[in-house]
């Protein structure tokens, strides 16, 4: 049985960009800032495309929730080998305050509509670091979940997943359908090749609204203030080891 795989692609501020807080402290500066696909999502896309290449998957569909520019992120996924994209158009205040619960509901609904067998997501996004979407999506669908995957294998209609957990590795088996979240060491994403970039231009991207999916995206939180992290204070030099230990004890570090 070849599987249908749904992958999530969040558009985030590029990892190499220095983040600046807006002067009014309502968020961070995003205008004119380079954005790219969340690196963990790139790993998820790569894994889904490899599943297709190994004929484990029959179709890979990428989803991105956000403004018009999210389609650029989807194009990157298409250039990596994803078959088609779904852009869930969320903009304005709804987008600024979009939470994992909203995205989970959207993904769950699309997975049902598209009859997907596997939802493959990045373990977290590098902007809000929520690490909730995969877990909540699994709950909403009542599907098993295997998070922080560093290896995924298909065995007799089930998936065997090697998970990175505190202090070691855990192997779990999950029945399909399932939700999996990708960790850093799952794979190394490929470069989009020129012929595939060309092909990606012709691949379809369907645009839908959360309303079409029956999902509310009304803000559930209010941002009171966004602050820069405190500036690091300069250290001090001490005379000898004894003073060092005394000082460390003083500040409660040892």
């Amino acid at each position: 049985m070849a599987l249908r795989v749904l992958v999530g692609c969040k558009r985030v501020i590029d990892y190499a960009v220095r983040i600046r807080v807006k002067p009014d402290k309502t968020g961070v500066v995003t205008d004119g800032i380079k954005h790219s696909m969340n690196p963990f999502d790139e790993i998820a896309v790569e894994e889904a495309v490899r599943m297709k290449e190994k004929k484990i998957a029959s179709e890979v569909i990428a989803v991105s929730c956000g403004p018009m520019q999210s389609q650029e992120t989807l194009r990157t996924a298409l250039a990596m080998g994803v078959d088609r994209g779904i852009h869930v158009d969320v903009s304005g205040k709804d987008y600024e305050l979009l939470q994992p619960i909203h995205v989970s509901k959207i993904l769950a609904k699309i997975a049902q509509e598209e009859k997907c067998d596997i939802i493959l997501l990045g373990k977290q996004a590098i902007d809000d670091d929520s690490n909730q979407t995969a877990q909540m999506t699994a709950s909403l669908l009542n599907w098993p979940q295997a998070t922080y995957a560093s290896k995924i294998e298909k065995t007799n209609g089930e998936l065997q997943v090697l998970r990175e957990i505190d202090g070691g590795l855990e192997t779990v088996r999950v029945k399909i359908p399932a939700v999996i979240s990708a960790d850093l060491r799952l794979n190394e994403p490929r470069y989009a090749t020129l012929p595939n970039i060309m092909k990606a231009k012709k691949k379809p991207i369907k645009k839908v609204t959360p309303g079409d999916l029956g999902v509310e995206t009304d803000p559930r939180i209010e941002i009171l203030s966004v602050e820069d992290p405190p500036e690091r204070q300069a250290g001090i030099k001490v005379e000898d080891v004894d003073t060092l230990i005394a000082k460390l004890k003083e500040v409660g570090r040892i």
Partner: peptide, 10 residues
Amino acid sequence: MLAESVKSFA
């Protein structure tokens, strides 16, 4: 996208 791909390759 082409520029991005070549840039990361380089």
